[in-house]
Measured scan of single mutants.
Amino acid sequence: VPQRAWTVEQLRSEQLPKKDIIKFLQEHGSDSFLAEHKLLGNIKNVAKTANKDHLVTAYNHLFETKRFK
């Protein structure tokens, strides 16, 4: 089981690129989880459509539901 890579403050910070969060989610989330949160596909394309709040919610949801690969 992966550990949380970032704190809530870090997740919301401008310093953390959306692409980093997407990469983490794609590496650790199950396909059904990723599909549900519309996070499947090319990281660049996902970054265009997903806002930061959406990614933070998905990140927290992944750990709450433990839907890891």
Rank of each mutant, 00 (worst) to 15 (best):
T49H: 10
H61I: 08
R67S: 14
P2D: 04
D20E: 13
Y59K: 01
S13T: 03
K44H: 15
E9V: 03
F24K: 02
T49F: 14
A47D: 13
S30E: 09
V1A: 10
A5E: 15
E27L: 09
A35K: 11
K18Y: 04
A35N: 09
E14P: 15
F24L: 03
A58Q: 03
A5S: 13
Y59H: 02
K52W: 13
R67T: 10
V56G: 02
A5L: 15
K66H: 10
T49C: 14
A47Y: 07
L25D: 00
E9K: 04
D31F: 13
L39W: 01
V1T: 09
L55F: 05
Q3E: 15
D20Q: 09
Q10M: 11
W6E: 09
H61Q: 10
L55Q: 00
N42S: 10
Q10A: 04
R67A: 11
K18N: 11
N42H: 12
Q15G: 11
N51V: 08
E36V: 09
N60I: 15
F33H: 02
Y59C: 01
F68P: 03
E64S: 07
T7Q: 05
P17E: 11
P2Q: 03
V56N: 02
R4C: 15
S30H: 09
E14G: 09
I43M: 09
I22Q: 01
E9D: 07
A58S: 08
K18Q: 09
P17W: 02
D20N: 08
S30L: 06
F68H: 04
S13N: 06
A50I: 14
A35T: 08
P2M: 04
K18A: 15
R4A: 07
A58E: 01
G41A: 05
V8Q: 14
A58F: 04
Q15Y: 09
Q10Y: 07
L11Y: 01
S13F: 02
T65W: 10
N45V: 14
H54S: 11
K18G: 11
K52R: 15
L16G: 01
D31Q: 12
E9W: 02
L55P: 00
K38N: 11
R12T: 13
K48I: 14
H37V: 06
P2A: 03
Q3D: 14
G41W: 03
A50S: 11
Q10S: 03
E14H: 09
R67V: 07
S30M: 07
L40Y: 10
W6R: 09
V1C: 15
D20A: 07
K18C: 15
K48L: 14
K23Q: 12
K52L: 08
V1L: 10
G29F: 01
I43R: 06
A58D: 02
L34S: 01
T57W: 09
S32Q: 11
D31M: 13
L34E: 00
D20T: 13
P17T: 08
I21L: 05
D31G: 11
Q26V: 06
L34P: 00
L11I: 05
A47V: 15
D53Q: 07
I22T: 02
H28M: 09
K19R: 10
K18R: 10
Q26F: 05
H61C: 15
A50D: 03
K69R: 13
H54A: 09
T7H: 05
Q3G: 06
K38S: 12
